[in-house]
C-alpha cells in the first residue's frame, strides 16, 4: 500500500519529475496498452450481445470491415503484442527470478514484436491496401 511520503517543499519542486529510462518506459507503456485493451474488451463483449440475432450480428461483423476498423485492428494488435511480450518478461522475472541483461532483452523482444506485428497485421493492412487502390 502507498505510504505517505514527505513532500518536497512545493516552492522548490512544484512538479514531480520522472527520469524516463527504458525500464520506466516499458512500465508506462504496459499500463497504457493495458488500459486501451480494457476499453476494447468492454466494447467487444458488449457488442457481441448481438450474437443471438442474425441481422444484428451481420451488421456488427460488417462494421468490423470498415476502413477505420482495419486501422484500429492493426493498432489493437500492436497493443496486444507489446502487452503480451512485456507481461511474459514480468512473469519470468517474478516466477523464476530470471534476470538477464534487461535492456538488451527489452530491445530483443522489441524485434520479436515487430515480426509478429508484420505477420499478424498483414490481413488488415493488405485489405486496406487493396481498398485504397480500388
Amino acid at each position: 500500500m502507498a505510504v505517505a511520503a514527505p513532500r518536497a517543499t512545493p516552492a522548490a519542486q512544484p512538479v514531480q519529475r520522472y527520469k524516463v529510462r527504458t525500464g520506466m518506459f516499458a512500465w508506462m507503456l504496459h499500463r497504457l496498452t493495458g488500459l486501451a485493451l480494457i476499453g476494447y474488451l468492454v466494447l467487444h463483449i458488449w457488442g457481441l450481445k448481438s450474437i443471438t440475432n442474425r441481422e444484428a450480428y451481420n451488421a456488427l461483423i460488417t462494421s468490423y470491415h470498415a476502413p477505420i476498423f482495419k486501422v484500429g485492428e492493426f493498432l489493437l494488435l500492436g497493443a496486444v503484442i507489446y502487452h503480451a511480450l512485456n507481461g511474459l518478461r514480468i512473469v519470468l522475472i517474478d516466477f523464476v527470478g530470471w534476470s538477464p541483461n534487461q535492456k538488451r532483452l527489452f530491445w530483443t523482444l522489441g524485434a520479436v514484436a515487430a515480426v509478429l506485428f508484420a505477420v499478424g497485421g498483414y490481413p488488415s493492412l493488405a485489405a486496406l491496401f487493396d481498398y485504397l487502390n480500388g
Binding site: A59, I61, T62, S63, Y64, H65, A66, P67, K70, P123
Partner: peptide, 16 residues
C-alpha cells in the same frame, strides 16, 4: 469472421 474485404459505412447502409 473477418475477411479480406473492406465495407464502408455507406455500403453497409445499402445492405452490402
Amino acid at each position: 469472421s473477418i475477411s479480406h474485404d473492406v465495407v464502408t459505412h455507406d455500403q453497409a447502409e445499402t445492405g452490402v
